[in-house]
Simulated scan of single mutants.
Amino acid sequence: MAVTAFDATELGWIDPIVDRVLEEDLARGDVTSRAVVPPVANARARLVAKAPCVVAGLPVFARVFERIDSQVRVEARVEDGTAVDAGTELAVVFGRARSILAGERSALNLLGRASGVATATRTFVEAAGGMVVADTRKTMPGLRALDRYAVRVGGGRNHRDDLGAAVLIKENHARIAGGVAAAVRAAKACVGHMTKVSCEVTNLDEVRAALEAGAEVLLLDNMTDDDVAEAVRIVAGRAVVEASGGLAPERLARLAAAGVNVASVGAITHSAPAADLSLLFDPPGDGP
Rank of each mutant, 00 (worst) to 15 (best):
G266N: 02
R160E: 02
E23Y: 08
P249W: 04
H159S: 11
I14T: 01
A189K: 08
D25T: 09
E200I: 12
F61S: 01
S70P: 12
C199W: 05
R185E: 11
P38N: 10
G130W: 00
L280I: 09
I176V: 14
A215I: 13
L220R: 01
A2C: 00
A258C: 10
A8W: 11
G142Q: 07
D226A: 15
G178P: 11
G164T: 10
E242L: 06
L218M: 07
V180C: 01
I169N: 05
V241S: 02
E212M: 10
A267N: 01
I14H: 09
L219P: 02
D282W: 00
G214T: 05
D286F: 08
A256M: 04
V55A: 05
M194L: 12
N42R: 15
H173P: 03
A45H: 04
A231K: 08
D161E: 07
V132Q: 13
A43R: 09
K170P: 04
V265C: 02
L58I: 08
C199A: 15
A166W: 11
S244M: 09
A213P: 07
A128K: 11
R148M: 07
K50Q: 09
T32V: 15
A186K: 12
D85N: 07
P284V: 11
A62F: 01
D282F: 00
G29Q: 13
D225A: 14
F61G: 04
S115A: 08
G245T: 10
V64M: 07
N172Q: 05
A62C: 05
P141M: 03
N222F: 02
V232S: 01
T82L: 00
V153C: 05
T202Q: 14
E24H: 14
N172W: 00
D15H: 09
P249A: 14
A49Y: 08
A97V: 06
D7P: 00
P38M: 06
S70G: 15
R28A: 15
R208Y: 06
E104G: 02
D227V: 05
V37C: 12
A45C: 11
